[in-house]
């Protein structure tokens, strides 16, 4: 366990597999409102695709896909998307997260308004979950030198 060495075959396999997992995560997020899946599952799949390369390649190669400083802003943006959609529903005259009253341009039916609102929510949740899971990994690998 203490011997750590770089294996090019493991790294090649991880690099081969990672884009497909990422693509599947995007599929799960964008089809989450009418099929199984959704923001959390898709975000966890995106995080798994990034963590796979980070585990296989070590610290330097893992930073090429998503640098460590970017994780916290992406998480914050995801939460802002979520609460922004919910609060704009309040401003439009409905309840919190009531997508039916959201005034999207060119949309008159409440069903389509709910469709688009749910899609925006899923994207926000996916970004937040992905960033936070990667951030947990990065903070664990850095160790405890916060004091």
């Amino acid at each position: 366990m203490n011997k750590r060495f770089q294996s090019p075959i493991v790294l090649l396999g991880a690099r081969f597999l990672s884009p497909y997992i990422f693509m599947f995560g995007l599929y799960v997020i964008f089809h989450g409102h009418y099929s199984p899946g959704g923001g959390f599952q898709g975000g966890a799949l995106l995080a798994a695709a990034i963590l796979l390369v980070r585990v296989a390649g070590g610290e330097k190669i893992g930073q090429l896909q998503l640098i460590e400083k970017l994780t916290t802003p992406i998480g914050v943006i995801g939460v802002i998307i979520y609460f922004g959609t919910g609060l704009s529903a309040i401003l439009a005259g409905g309840n919190f997260l009531d997508y039916g009253v959201l005034p999207f341009p060119g949309v008159v039916e409440p069903a389509w308004s709910r469709y688009i609102g749910l899609l925006i929510i899923e994207v926000g949740i996916g970004a937040a979950v992905m960033a936070i899971l990667v951030m947990i990994y990065d903070n664990m690998i850095k160790g405890e030198d916060y004091d």
Partner: peptide
């Protein structure tokens, strides 16, 4: 199906990676 999907992604993917990381960070 939804619960099974979550269990497969989180339990078999992310948790396994985090446990392997903890094993690398600690020694017996």
């Amino acid at each position: 199906v939804d619960v099974g999907f979550t269990e497969a992604v989180v339990g078999a993917g992310v948790t396994g990676i985090l446990f392997v990381l903890v094993l690398f960070k600690t020694s017996r």
